[in-house]
Nucleic acid binder design. Structure first.
Lengths: 209, 209
DNA sequence: CATAGAATCGGACTATGGTCCGTTTAGTAA
DNA sequence: TTACTAAACGGACCATAGTCCGATTCTATG
C-alpha cells in the first residue's frame, strides 16, 4: 500500500500573501479590507454585511476588493484563515489527542469535536465561505480531507478511506450545523456525542481485527 | 420505546395544489410556469436559466412567478416534485429492497442507491433546490430523514438514529455529489459502493447482537 | 346582466454580487 | 529628478433574485 503523508500534498492556505512582489498600496489595501471585513462580520454577522459596505468601510473601491479576494466566499475564507491556521497547527503539532500520538480513532474524534467548536464560534463565516461545489476544492477543505483520510486508513486499512473521509466531513457542513443548532435546537454536546458515535461505527472496532 | 410511523408525520410535498379555491387564471399560470421551467431547465441546465427568462417563456410577469413559487429554490423543488413523488412511492409501496419487506440494512442501501440515481439524473436541479440551512426543513428532505431514521432505529435500536440519519443524508448532498462526480471524476458505481460500505459500518453488524 | 370586491397580474424598482476599463500611482532605471 | 511601465485603483456598469403596488381580471351574488 502506498503510504501518503502531508509532505506529498503540502499544506495550502488561501494565497493571502501573494507569491511575488506586492506593491505597497496593494498590501495596505489588503490589510484595510481584511480589518474592515473582520470588524463588520463580527459586529453584525456575516450574513448581514454587503460587499459594498466592506469596500466603503475599508475606504477602497469595489473593484479593488474583488481583485484582491475574488468573491465573497473567498473573502470570508481569508478572514477565517488565521483561525484555520491555528486549527491546522493543533492537528499537526498540537497535543494529543488532536495532535499526533493518540490512536487514530481518538484523533478522529478530537478532530470532529474541535471542528464543531470552530463551527459553534464561526458558523456564519463558515457558511459564507461555503459556496457551491467549488468549496470542496478549497485548500483548507483539502487539508481536512487528507487528515481524516489518513487517520481512517490508519485505523482500518481495509476501508475506502478516500470516500469515507468525504462522507464524514459532509456531516460537519456549516449548513447542517446551523440548521441542527438553531432550527432544531440541538445542543453542541449532542452533536459531539453524535460525531463520536459515527466515528466509532465507521472505523472498525478493535476486536474486528 | 415509542414507535414512530409515517402516520405520525404524514407525507408532505411542496404545496403544489393550493389548499382552498384557486382562480382559473392562477391555475393556468402555475401550469404555464412549471412547463416553461421544466423545458428551460432541461434544455440548458438549471444553472443557466434566469427567473426572468422563465417568466418570459411562460408569458407571465415576474411578480406572478414569485408569488406562485416564492423563490428560485422553491421553483426547482416544484419541478422536481413529480420525480420526488415517484421516489416516495417506491419507498412506501414499491418492491423490496427499496420498498417494505427487506431487512432494514438492505432497504437503507437501496434508498441511497436510488437517491444517487436521482442525483445522477437531476443533480443541477437538486443543487438549485438546495439553498441554505432552510433546505433541511423542506418537506421532501423531512420524508427522507424520517425514512432513514426509522430504518436505522429498526436495524439497531441502540443507536441515535435521529442524528445518524442527518449524517448519512449529508453524504448524499448535491454539492458533494457534483464535486465528486465532475471535478474528481468518481464513477457512480464507486459512489454507490461507498454508500453501501458506509451503511454497513453504520448499522450494527448482525453478529453484534 | 350588472356590480362589487377580492385575488391576481405584471413590470418598474431595489439590493447585491461581480465585471470592466479608463485613470492613477508605485517602483525602476537612466 | 524625470520618464517610463506595469500594476493597482475605483466607480460606473451589468445581471439577476426578489419586492411592491397600482391596474386588471375573475368569481360570486342579486
Amino acid at each position: 500500500m502506498k503510504v501518503m503523508s502531508y509532505a506529498s500534498s503540502p499544506f495550502e492556505l488561501p494565497q493571502i500573501e501573494p507569491e511575488g512582489f506586492e506593491r505597497a498600496d496593494a498590501a495596505r489595501n489588503r490589510e484595510r479590507i481584511l480589518c474592515a471585513a473582520r470588524r463588520l462580520f463580527d459586529e453584525r454577522g456575516a450574513g448581514c454585511v454587503s460587499m459594498d459596505e466592506i469596500a466603503d468601510a475599508a475606504g477602497v473601491g469595489k473593484g479593488t476588493l474583488f481583485r484582491r479576494f475574488g468573491s465573497r466566499a473567498s473573502l470570508a475564507a481569508a478572514v477565517l484563515s488565521e483561525r484555520e491556521r491555528e486549527f491546522q497547527e493543533g492537528i499537526i503539532r498540537g497535543e494529543p489527542p488532536l495532535g499526533p500520538g493518540a490512536p487514530p480513532q481518538e484523533r478522529l474524534i478530537a478532530f470532529g469535536e474541535a471542528f464543531l467548536d470552530t463551527l459553534e464560534a464561526h458558523s456564519e463565516l463558515l457558511l459564507a465561505a461555503e459556496t457551491g461545489p467549488a468549496r470542496f476544492a478549497h485548500p483548507a477543505y483539502r487539508v481536512h480531507r487528507l487528515h481524516v483520510m489518513l487517520l481512517l486508513g490508519e485505523a482500518d486499512p481495509e476501508c475506502d478511506s478516500e470516500m469515507l473521509a468525504e462522507s464524514l466531513l459532509a456531516a460537519l457542513g456549516a449548513e447542517l450545523f446551523i440548521y441542527l443548532r438553531r432550527a432544531r435546537g440541538i445542543s453542541l454536546a449532542r452533536l459531539k456525542e453524535s460525531w463520536r458515535e459515527q466515528v466509532r461505527r465507521t472505523v472498525a472496532a478493535p476486536e474486528r481485527v
